[in-house]
Design a protein around this nucleic acid. Structure first.
Lengths: 117, 117
DNA sequence: AAGACATATTCTTTTACGGGAATATACAAT
DNA sequence: ATTGTATATTCCCGTAAAAGAATATGTCTT
């Protein structure tokens, strides 16, 4: 997950993923569309590959890169867990109240015990 | 979007977001839970704030940070566009075929015009 | 008003990473 | 076998960004 995010957080890599969304492509194709030099593209593909985001299929001298669904699926599942943020806020309200209580306790403790460093 | 990803791609910031998912928290609380020093936490919060991922509410000396739904919602929408990857592959197959055609044309052009750097 | 607390900011150092250039590898074509 | 084509890898450099340390800001308490 962390690795997926790191990989996607780079603009060129993000672009590569966007391009690969439409279908598998060989490196040269990506080079043309990105306006990057071939070595950089290969390097970015390496990072994406290490992150499990792409797969290679060898076709003679060509390497055809394909997008892998798994990490993106995982990312979707992760962000889904945040839906409650914009779908009703009861949970948040509860948490807030709970937290105020916690803070109250803490404030009390602090008064009693003084600093802690 | 890019900025959201960049912000989330850092492990500590990711952790902050995870903590904030359960509800708003003051900085000190985050410091305790993350085992980071206060200045670093503040700095990370700054980045998250610049990315629009968190909001501050001032409560006396405390600053209570809250997670903002919008960027995450946007992220979800983005990744949703990739569902087709793991839900049937007709689209991909079509793209592949289309692409093979493109490559064929290109191969021809290259032969005619020679190198280009 | 003085000190304690919570947080932010600045400055410096270190580390990570992306780009450039050159080179290596491997298959294809002739 | 030689040349050409597609891609990967290596090495170097510059910059961006994260950690560390010190300090600033603002509020609360007494």
């Amino acid at each position: 997950m962390m690795e997926t995010l790191r990989a996607l957080a780079e603009p060129n890599r993000f672009q590569i993923v966007e391009l690969l969304r439409k279908g598998p492509r060989p490196v040269g194709d990506l080079v043309d569309r990105l306006g990057l030099r071939q070595p950089q593209v290969s390097k970015h593909l390496r990072v994406l590959s290490d992150a499990g985001l792409v797969e290679v299929r060898v076709d003679a001298q060509r390497r055809i890169y394909t997008l892998c669904p798994a990490p993106l699926q995982e990312l979707e599942e992760w962000v889904e867990r945040y839906r409650q943020l914009w779908e009703g806020n009861f949970q948040r309200l509860a948490a807030l109240l709970d937290h105020m209580k916690t803070q109250e306790k803490k404030r009390g403790r602090r008064k009693r015990q003084g600093d802690h460093r």
